[in-house]
Write a protein that binds this DNA or RNA. Structure first.
Lengths: 227, 227
DNA sequence: AGTTTGAGTGAACAGGTGTTCACTCAAATC
DNA sequence: GATTTGAGTGAACACCTGTTCACTCAAACT
């Protein structure tokens, strides 16, 4: 047991840098442990779910004793809510990138799908967390994710309002269209996350085609219905 | 302990009918216990996931001893695969109902959404199981569900092939369209399952509008793209 | 009638679970 | 320099976990 220092290990492996060399303030150290808990949890529940994850698994992954967990979170569910916030911070960063979309791409669809693909990889754990816990997490976590997605849908509907003719597009229709686009993008995300890498090109192509189909529908839409 | 008979209790509560009055064959009894395990599992993992469900919880729910479980399934994962088969039997029954759609409804969309709503309620546990375990179940269960959904998508694409002009609709486009419709219906199912009952009317209306939008897109689609 | 089969039992195992408690000891405050 | 604060420790608790084993005893087969 003489190996275990008082300082948390922070991740699965042992620190490469001499642990003594870091003069940390109290707050810095607490924040570092907190981060380590969040990161370890994202990794550990990757192929199961928060509801199947035990407090002791998390603390073992971090390299702290079970009791230390309570200095940071009340429960796994509480931890989950923190991860929802963090994950949606990633997602909103992506939306920011989508909005000021790369001018080298000629249209919105290509650049959106490109940005989605990039972020799903660079923020893989966050996107996987949302996709899973959205339907399988603890009730409070599910509710929090649903709420966040609803906010995103409303934002997208507001964006779309600026691009469409209010004569033909009612607020309700825009909300419905926005929901469909978000649902489709959630589906694309799930597909990327659970596919072999070589299939990703095809998934992206499918996502583009779907958005094009929806766009064709939108261009011919009349609020009055199919007429 | 004198209350506990040798016969399994079959569900949460105690049997109302005198348990002695049933002369069962060996096979009948085994099948009854198997059903009880399947039913108890569907109930128990309703608000968590298979991965968070223990073998002992299941057997306690059924009213049998943990060891008896192994007479029916190798593991919880094995049980999960049986539930996938059973749940997709429900889903395919729904698809059958959709195909010979109610002639009192004038179009496919209205009747399809109606049938979906009905089946999501009458087979609530099966649909909830698929929706959850699709993303959060044990790997083998996830794979099985993905495979089944892929089959459904291909069937739908074949149906659509009969309704569209092959001049404008390539096989690939039909597959993509089918994927979008299925994704949208999965989204609608999730929405119904996690919404308060009074919101269901609005969800159905949204589902109809989305299908109408897609249909408008389909009617104006050219395989060559947006032109 | 006698034998085999197999669904269900109950005890035991080694180990994992959340939570409590009194504790250390270094940073932060006085 | 003395005191307070609080992140982390380690033992202990009562309970739950999957799996094993030898067993019962009624239905099914010979």
């Amino acid at each position: 047991m003489e190996r275990s220092s008082r300082r948390p290990r922070v991740a699965g492996g042992d620190p490469v840098v001499p642990p003594v060399a870091a003069p940390e303030s109290r707050g810095e150290r607490k924040e570092r442990t907190r981060r380590a808990i969040l990161d370890a949890t994202l990794e550990l529940c990757e192929d199961s779910s928060l509801v199947a994850l035990s407090l002791r698994q998390v603390t073992k992954g971090v390299g702290i004793v079970p009791t230390a967990f309570y200095r940071h979170f009340d429960s796994i569910e509480d931890l989950g809510l923190a991860l929802v916030e963090e994950s949606f911070a990633s997602l909103r960063e992506m939306l920011r990138d989508v909005r000021r979309s790369d001018p080298t791409y000629q249209n919105i669809i290509d650049s959106s799908v490109k940005v989605l693909g990039e972020h799903v990889h660079s923020q893989h754990d966050h996107f996987a967390f949302i996709a899973r816990e959205r339907v399988a997490g603890p009730p409070a976590v599910r509710a929090a994710i649903r709420h966040q997605i609803e906010l995103v849908e409303r934002e997208l509907a507001a964006d779309l309002a600026r691009l469409t003719d209010p004569e033909y597009w009612s607020t309700e229709d825009l909300q419905v269209l926005s929901n469909m686009i978000v649902t489709s993008m959630v589906g694309t995300t799930e597909a990327i996350l659970s596919a072999r890498p070589e299939a990703e090109q095809a998934i992206a192509e499918q996502a583009r085609t779907q958005l094009r189909m929806v766009l064709v529908g939108a261009l011919h839409w009349r609020s009055t219905g199919l007429g």
